[in-house]
Design a protein around this nucleic acid. Structure first.
Lengths: 351, 351
DNA sequence: CTGAAAGCGCTTACAG
DNA sequence: CTGAAAGCGCTTACAG
């Protein structure tokens, strides 16, 4: 049995489906080429024909098929770029997305976005789906351990920019936070407030940014001649709950830390929950990596090293567009600076 | 001057650009149709030809042009749906987006998303750009005052679902929060805690949801025989700052409210800032409409009437897909229930 | 099991 | 100023 057409789905056109440029041409009694001229606002069509074509377009409810035109058009551009994000719903990714959209909109370009959720298979599937839809460029926050499979796209002339994490096995423009410097800044701030027993709580150690933040932590301590207690370094937490448990365990140690450096968003939140549960939020210092909404409304306010996802997104998008405009340069790494925001939790002094 | 090709952009194919199905056919010494069969995993091709084609694909770095194939394919589907959101970076929109993505991914469908920012012109521009790219369906959180211009799309057979706000001037599936009932629930909760002087603080009165929330507020009061003080009703706030100012003014009235019903997210945050600044957060009760991250970590925790954007997004996407699968029904409004979450701020009793 | 011809909706490259 | 022919990369509808 044929599926019933929707009751509201009357067909304005006898052949079913939408009106085409040809239909408009027929109704306006001109050639397809003339309709094309009118649609694309090319000059040199008599007013009478423009009027006839416009009327026919109106009458048939004709909408140009941009997809078909880009197949034939000289540059073949689809005016679409793909954004491979960690998770469109998390504040960092969605700020990136929004900033890219802003830059893209000025050029009439749309964004196709998708979430990877740290799944390498999904990274590849998304990129392949985007490539299949002929995106003009690709902004990728990589999750897999190697992106050399993208060589084909880059060789084919599609600009690719990596954000947040560096690519492996391939050269391409990359927009990163200076994670090491940011972590040094955070930990240095705690040291300046008299802390020496500073714990590191970080995300999956497989993630490059987590590795860099741990490095920065170690460097900051080393530069002050502090040797971190191995028990104070906790890695591989990817949820609030894991971080919460870890902080509980840390505070039950014989020599608990007096300060925490929480190297990722969810880890920061989890740590705050644990401190709250123990009524220690005004006693144990905390600096988090990555800002989050309402951090200033908590008590104490949460001191963070803030990233600037909007700046990253804007830069990533503009690199894409500059390449599409024909500019050319050797792929480079762009590092966006972090900013320490003092709100209280990081200014608790060691006793 | 011709733009220089990027130094890394060597051309694997003599004609420049990417390899096509034809190139593969030539290299594998088969017809284009056979390559098409292999690419689409159609049965009935000899192993030898499959191997030859696969090798050629590999050698040339061939990627099928899905856009071109959908132009010719019987159903013409692009496996893409468009999401017209308020702002991809706000938590409500991004939760909607994410939920739609989840449903879409199961079917290999991608999401094209864009932000309207309450600008009617952008709503139309986005929808037109999506339609031009032949999206299979459209999920729209409308900002303009009339959506009848979408009639053409719906008549053309493109499923359209409205979310968060009802469409005007057109019949289509719509997924809403029960704003009136939610507001009644919030205000009823405050009344149950002894409050009679309850302020309403709401978003732009031009927005349908804001109107419904005000109605719910008025109904809840009326049902208890309470007549609201006109000065306690403040509308048309669209930023945190505006809400903050408004709360300051309310608390300086001769008869200030003892409780606040903040009918939107940013308004809630702004109100909390004002209460904090006056150290009144434990004295003035507050119930917000719409949940937000960390609401439970503030002091007091923020009592809210929560919407369920994930449920809305899932439902909206599945309605699109059911229509695409050929199901048919009269357009209907689906109301998703709200949920009161008690966290402290709403349980402060009137003195 | 395989392929030649036609065509999806549009633009290019011409010719008049 | 206008249009007929060819073709973008692919699939359809056939024929063998």
């Amino acid at each position: 049995m044929e599926p019933d057409p929707s009751p509201t789905a009357a067909r304005p056109h006898p052949t079913g489906g939408r009106a085409t440029l040809r239909d408009v041409a027929r109704l306006a009694a001109v050639s397809p080429k003339t309709v094309s001229r009118v649609v694309n606002r090319e000059p040199g069509v008599t007013d009478a024909k423009v009027a006839a074509v416009t009327a026919a377009i109106e009458k048939l409810g004709y909408r140009p098929n941009f997809t078909a035109s880009s197949l034939r058009r000289a540059n073949g551009r689809t005016a679409t770029i793909g954004a491979v994000l960690e998770n469109v719903a998390n504040p960092f990714s969605s700020a990136l997305h929004r900033a890219m959209e802003e830059v893209a909109r000025e050029r009439g370009v749309l964004i196709l976005a998708g979430s990877v959720d740290e799944d390498p298979a999904r990274e590849r599937a998304l990129i392949s789906a985007f490539a299949g839809r002929q995106v003009d460029g690709l902004v990728v926050a990589p999750a897999s351990s190697n992106q050399s499979y993208l060589t084909t796209e880059i060789l084919g002339g599609t600009p690719v920019v990596f954000v947040d994490r560096p690519p492996v096995g391939i050269q391409a423009d990359t927009v990163l936070i200076d994670n090491r410097a940011g972590a040094r800044q955070a930990v240095g701030h705690l040291i300046a407030h008299g802390h020496r027993a500073i714990a590191y709580l970080g995300d999956l150690s497989s993630i490059a940014t987590a590795q860099d933040r741990l490095l920065g932590y170690q460097e900051a301590l080393a530069s002050e001649g502090i040797r971190p207690c191995p028990e104070h370094i906790v890695q591989d937490m990817h949820t609030e709950e894991a971080a919460e448990q870890a902080v509980h365990r840390l505070l039950e140690l014989d020599s608990p830390p007096t300060a925490l450096f929480t190297a990722q968003n969810l880890v920061t939140i989890g740590a705050i929950r644990a401190l709250r549960a123990r009524h220690r939020q005004h006693a144990v210092a905390l600096v988090g990596f990555d800002d989050f909404p309402l951090a200033d409304l908590l008590e104490p306010g949460v001191t963070v090293v803030a990233q600037d996802p909007s700046a990253m997104g804007r830069l990533a998008a503009s690199l894409i567009f500059r390449r599409l405009d024909g500019e050319s340069w050797e792929p480079a790494v762009h590092e966006i600076r972090t900013q320490l925001i003092r709100r209280g939790s990081g200014e608790i002094s060691a006793v």
